[in-house]
């Protein structure tokens, strides 16, 4: 699968929220697009990501 343009191999099918947590993302500080669609956070646990998926993860740092 693709994550932010980089190809990675997905060992097992996994839901989106576990994928993000396993990769040290802070769920409260990001926005996620899966195959071109923005995914509401309430759906993160229902979505199983697959090897053909393309994921764009935007994280926010503080300051303004």
């Amino acid at each position: 699968m693709k994550v932010n343009g980089k190809i990675i191999s997905l060992k097992t099918n996994i839901d989106l929220i576990d994928f993000l947590r396993n990769n040290d993302y802070e769920i409260s500080k990001l926005a996620v697009e899966l195959n071109g669609n923005i995914i509401p956070k309430s759906k993160f646990k229902d979505i199983i990501i697959q090897d053909c998926d393309s994921l764009e993860i935007v994280t926010f740092v503080g300051g303004g």
């Binding site: 500080k29 990001l30 923005i38 509401p40 935007v58 740092v61 503080g62 300051g63 303004g64």
Partner: peptide, 30 residues
């Protein structure tokens, strides 16, 4: 905003609930 949690909340809400609106955000300028 200053707070990253508020940044994410605004961006996510606009993109999912107000899909005709464009949002221009910021992250990382310290």
């Amino acid at each position: 905003f200053d707070n990253p949690i508020s940044k994410a909340a605004l961006v996510n809400t606009i993109l999912t609930e107000l899909p005709s609106i464009k949002i221009v955000a910021a992250s990382g300028m310290a």
